[in-house]
Design a protein around this nucleic acid. Structure first.
Lengths: 128, 128
DNA sequence: TCTTGACTTAGAGTGCGCTCTAAGTTGTAG
DNA sequence: CTACAACTTAGAGCGCACTCTAAGTCAAGA
């Protein structure tokens, strides 16, 4: 167990989040993650809040939000409550995009499904 | 109207499919599209079958299939009916992947939805 | 004391999927 | 006859999101 509030090394955060240590440092460098606290030896020590934020970032990425937009969101977050409306708008736009993307995937899935059935039938004919 | 079976120029196909002429030539170069017929002046002339294949390629891409797999599929297609089983397997794998991806998006959508509601409430408090 | 290994930084390199450029040919309009 | 637009090729370049390298620091264990 750790000192007070359970601080994690970059290795541990990499394992916990599935991001590589390279990516964690990269995200911090570009400003996606605010400056992480350091131990006396300059090594990073991540708080649980940090890990929570990283998990949220992962979700944004997985929904297809480009890094520059995530950067904007992170910036707004750091600016405090007066940026709530803009962040809300970003999330709503993201929701629209994800819903549209899912609808598109659904359509494509139908075509794939159709082709699978067609191929199945053709195969049944060839090897009766 | 064109000669016999309505052949299209690369420009026309670009407009019809939404791919750029650059991308159309690129796809042909790497083997995603078989060699397109030429007019006397060496200019490409696309048949309706060609356009249909390109539309199918677009769907594969839109579902996230990487180019190297699409290449494999195109290769199998050209090899004829004895490759039906492998193509069927590829399509089934694609279906699994798309379904998994959609499920993941659905989960992320929930989190986004939750945050949107949370932010909405916070905003309502701040500006009553 | 020495080695090992986990960390640090700045910056270079990679893979993907295009996207663009340069230089040349061709066919039609004026 | 000339100008122009649309095409052709081979190959270079680009944006994104990482991913890796080199060189250095530091702390703990043999």
């Amino acid at each position: 167990m750790n000192t007070q509030t359970e601080l994690l090394t970059i290795q541990e955060v990499a394992e916990a989040t599935g991001l590589s240590v390279h990516t964690l440092r990269y995200y911090e460098r570009i400003g996606l993650i605010h400056s992480i606290g350091r131990a006396q030896n300059t090594h990073r020590r991540y708080s649980m809040d940090d890990v929570g934020w990283i998990e949220f970032l992962k979700k944004l990425r997985a929904t297809g939000m480009p890094i520059h937009q995530m950067l904007r969101y992170a910036e707004l977050q750091r600016m405090g409550d007066e940026t709530l409306p803009e962040r809300l708008e970003m999330l709503k736009e993201l929701r629209r995009n994800v819903e549209a993307h899912m609808a598109e995937l659904q359509e494509h899935l139908k075509v794939i499904q159709y082709k699978i059935e067609l191929y199945g039938e053709l195969l049944a004919e060839r090897t009766p």
